[in-house]
């Protein structure tokens, strides 16, 4: 009788453990990405974005990279508007 109960307890725990470890988490698993570098050239004229010309538009052909008004944030500042 005591053994029977013990078995039930262990099978409950085993089941719970399986459920917890194998069910998918909402939003999916978090994959460990390495650090990387990226660049966005102007899709119109192929020019790179020069630092002193700002982030929002292409200095050569006027292509708009971002339709927004940058403010003073953490690293990005007002001066980064093209």
């Amino acid at each position: 009788m005591a053994e029977e109960k013990n078995k039930r307890m262990l099978s409950y725990l085993e089941q719970l453990k399986l459920k917890a470890t194998q069910q998918p988490h909402y939003g999916g698993d978090i994959t460990n990405e390495e650090a990387q570098m990226d660049i966005r050239d102007c899709p119109e004229c192929g020019a790179a974005r020069a630092y002193h010309k700002g982030l929002t538009a292409c200095a050569y052909c006027g292509f708009v990279f971002m339709e927004t008004k940058l403010t003073d944030g953490i690293h990005i500042k007002k001066e980064n508007n093209s």
Partner: peptide, 21 residues
């Protein structure tokens, strides 16, 4: 977080994406 970094040679804006950790 993702951050613009400037190349000291050609002054292009690159984007540095830190690792998950």
């Amino acid at each position: 977080i993702d951050t613009y970094v400037t190349c000291s040679f050609c002054h292009s804006q690159n984007t540095f994406k830190p690792s998950t950790a």
